[in-house]
Amino acid sequence: MLTEALEGLAAAGGSALVGAAATDAWQAVRTSAARLLSRGDDGQEQYAIERLDRTAAEIERATDEDRQQLRDKLRTRWTGQLEMLLEEHPEAADELRELIECVRAELPAARESWVQNNTAEAGGIQYITQGGDINVGRGPAGA
């Protein structure tokens, strides 16, 4: 069972891989990611490269309307793969952190984006602070 921190790291890694796919940064990222995933096994490294390249090709082929949904699906898939990697090889966490930093350094700022959707229903009130605490639910009595 992974710790919450390692689950978060796997999610960040999945986002980084999908964010870099089909960009100019992809070649460097895919090589590092394949090395990370294969853990020194040449056959597994080639298999990882093929899977990573399929991810990039899927994103390139997707229509604008379908691209975000596809990215979400692929992000979930890669997050799961990275969670399994970290369960079997917790020592890979530092390498995954380095890969994430590499992606962040390679991607232009314009490629980085965040979306936050908040919906309050049935009289619920939300107090949302981006990058800080998140409070969801009803406000104080009488509010």
Rank of each mutant, 00 (worst) to 15 (best):
T3M: 02
L9W: 04
A10H: 04
A12P: 05
G13F: 07
G13M: 09
G14E: 09
G14L: 10
S15I: 06
V18C: 11
G19R: 07
A20C: 08
A22D: 15
D24Q: 15
A25N: 03
A28Q: 15
V29E: 00
R30T: 01
R30I: 03
A33C: 07
R39S: 05
D42C: 03
Q46D: 13
Q46I: 08
Y47V: 09
Y47K: 08
Y47Q: 11
E50I: 07
L52M: 03
L52Y: 02
D53Y: 00
T55N: 05
E58M: 11
E58F: 02
E60L: 04
R67F: 08
Q68R: 09
Q69P: 00
L70P: 02
D72E: 13
K73S: 07
L74V: 05
R75N: 10
R77W: 06
T79A: 05
G80F: 03
G80R: 14
M84Y: 08
H89A: 13
P90K: 05
P90L: 11
E91T: 11
E91I: 03
D94W: 11
R97K: 15
R97I: 12
V103L: 11
R104N: 14
A105S: 14
E106Y: 07
A110C: 06
N117C: 05
N117P: 00
G124W: 07
Q126R: 06
Y127H: 12
Y127N: 12
I128D: 02
I128T: 12
I128Y: 09
I128Q: 05
Q130Y: 14
I134D: 07
V136F: 12
G139L: 09
G139Q: 08
P140N: 09
P140W: 12
G142Y: 00
A143W: 13
